[in-house]
Design a binder for these strands. Structure first.
Lengths: 117, 117
DNA sequence: CCTTCATTTCAATCTCTATTGAGATGTTGA
DNA sequence: TCAACATCTCAATAGAGATTGAAATGAAGG
């Protein structure tokens, strides 16, 4: 996902708040299936109106998506937006010397490998 | 670089401001040698006091480091902090299925490969 | 030593964002 | 249709962060 400066600013702004950062990290570990709003609220410890405010902020920023399922609304993280954000931040980081940002690639690859059996 | 929630919040907060995001992206492309404060100010279009405010905000968040060189102060990006931030955000993203966050790894690897000859 | 240049500090103002509680909306099963 | 449940909306308040211009600090060369 290619990202504009405005989109990146909105994403970073969304991630710079404690409750919202916890929500995103929770949804990242939850995977593509996502979680219901109520379950998210219990886990991160937020009242319903606060949670709604933060979830719509995250959705506005394009970091999560929602779908209705019975009475619940299920939120899941938008992985392409996260990838795009990382790519936007690190764009042209190497100046011809991949060794410079190699550790960043390794860190991400490691964190993914750690999750597998 | 291992990162706490508080450090990550400070980093995202620092990146959620237009001038500061431009500074970081400029320094990412500038490489380890960095740039003098004056040069940064001219490129991103900021007055001296505004620039100083934003640079110290970034340094406080651990995203840049500074050193004096003659009359100038040279700022450079802290690559380990960026790597750590990405790893913090994507931690446990795979739930045993690396395919989920594979695109994020690929996006970062590609952006680095693009910079090489 | 004194002037010049580069950068930082300070105080005042303004804008943006988070939180709270009450009420409204929409969905499901009896 | 009615009662319950889940989530969202709204308005008011309080707090954090950005911008400005002037003045202060600190290093370097004549």
């Amino acid at each position: 996902m290619k990202m504009t400066e405005a989109q990146a600013l909105a994403a970073f702004s969304a991630l710079s708040q404690e409750t919202r950062l916890r929500i995103i990290r929770l949804l990242v570990t939850a995977g593509p299936d996502g979680l219901a709003a109520g379950a998210i609220g219990e886990t991160v410890g937020a009242s319903s109106s606060r949670l709604s405010f933060h979830l719509s902020h995250l959705e506005q920023a394009g970091l999560v998506q929602s779908r209705r399922e019975a009475r619940s609304i299920i939120y899941s993280v938008a992985y392409p937006a996260l990838s795009g954000l990382v790519a936007f931040l690190m764009r042209d980081c190497c100046q011809g010397h991949p060794a410079i940002c190699g550790p960043a690639v390794a860190a991400l690859a490691d964190c993914c490998a750690a999750g597998s059996p």
